[in-house]
């Protein structure tokens, strides 16, 4: 444990801005040793803290159980998930005990494009770069067209992470496929591998570079993204807003949608919400015969689509279809 800390300090002296990154790499290098030591250390810490807690307070609070009973428990026994300090987690670590999932109800989309604009604001993107896209879809010549909001599907069997030569894109334990833009070499192989064209390349257009400089990230709580997606010459894409979901907030595309088209939730909790309505995930998927795009590829996307039946809005061709070139 002490050896690991010493190494981190050395790195800090060499390069203060990159200290956490260097520390993390060191951690990976001495992964087995450090992990073994921290398990021992964490175990000891837990024993001590449990003792001190039980002696400190006797305060009781009433809580409602899942069965509907009101019980009194010790205040210290209640865990507040929102209070969990996740600052020790790096970009690559998933949030523990989470499996994020998205459900898009195609019957509700009216191509308002608020999700696209919200996403662009969140990630400091200028058009035509869109992580979230709304495409016009028409299955057959006889059927009616519909709007199809799409983004990165955060596949459980992602083709993109397999081809990365430097491990800059990775699958997190909470289901998110992330990009480490400090490591990405910009070979664009992941873009070739992705069957859904979810990824975009930061070509470094002058207006985008200028915009990034004049709009620094994390200036407000609303416009804050931990992933540094704007680095010139790297690949970026929808990241499921990891800084938002870590705090228990919904990603921007969901809160921005006026029609509640997009649902976000946790597969382990079996629940999805669009901020106003909440559904049981498995029941929703079953009742509405949900599907995933290009199921036959075996990529196992984490984004489900509900077919556009009983639509809330008629399809209007007058609404401008964006992204037709691409």
């Amino acid at each position: 444990m002490s050896e690991h800390t010493e190494n981190s300090h050395k790195n800090e002296e060499n390069n203060p801005s990159d200290a956490t990154e260097a520390g993390r790499r060191k951690f990976l290098k001495f992964g087995v040793l450090a992990a073994g030591l921290s398990v021992v250390g964490g175990g000891l810490q837990k024993v001590f803290s449990d003792e001190s807690k039980s002696t400190l307070t006797e305060e009781k609070v009433k809580v409602l159980t899942a069965e509907g009973k009101v019980v009194e428990v010790n205040k210290n026994a209640i865990a507040h998930p929102a209070d969990n300090n996740l600052s020790h987690l790096t970009e690559r670590d998933g949030i523990p005990n989470r499996k994020f999932i998205m459900v898009i109800d195609l019957a509700r989309c009216a191509n308002a494009r608020k999700c696209v604009e919200g996403c662009q604001k969140m990630h400091n993107l200028l058009p035509p770069i869109e992580y979230m896209k709304v495409r016009k879809m028409q299955d057959t010549p006889l059927t009616s067209p519909y709007w199809f909001p799409t983004a990165c599907y955060h596949c459980d069997n992602p083709p993109c992470t397999k081809v990365c030569p430097v491990g800059a894109t990775f699958k997190r334990s909470d289901g998110i496929v992330g990009i480490d833009s400090d490591r990405c070499i910009g070979c664009k192989f992941c873009m070739a591998a992705c069957p859904y064209s979810a990824r975009t390349f930061n070509f470094g257009r002058p207006e985008q570079v200028e915009f990034n400089e004049s709009h620094p990230k994390c200036d407000t709580q609303e416009n804050c993204c931990v992933t540094n997606g704007g680095a010139v010459g790297t690949v970026s894409k929808c990241d499921f807003c990891p800084s938002h979901v870590a705090e228990g907030r919904l990603p921007t595309c969901i809160t921005a949608c006026p029609n509640g088209t997009i649902f976000f939730g946790d597969e382990l909790e079996d629940v999805v919400t669009n901020g106003e309505e909440t559904f049981r995930l498995k029941k929703l998927l079953k009742d509405r015969s949900a599907y995933r795009e290009m199921e036959e590829l075996g990529t196992k996307p984490r984004v489900y689509f509900l077919p556009p039946v009983k639509r809330l809005f008629p399809f209007e061709d007058a609404t401008k279809a964006y992204n037709t070139e691409e």
């Binding site: 081809v163 990365c164 030569p165 070499i185 910009g186 070979c187 664009k188 790297t234 690949v235």
Partner: peptide, 23 residues
């Protein structure tokens, strides 16, 4: 020339993954 970040070419040696076709 096709790479977005030629300045990170050495990452192929530092972080190289043998599974990748680029390597």
């Amino acid at each position: 020339a096709a790479m977005g970040r030629p300045d990170r070419l050495h990452y192929l040696i530092i972080h190289g993954r043998i599974q990748s076709p680029i390597v």
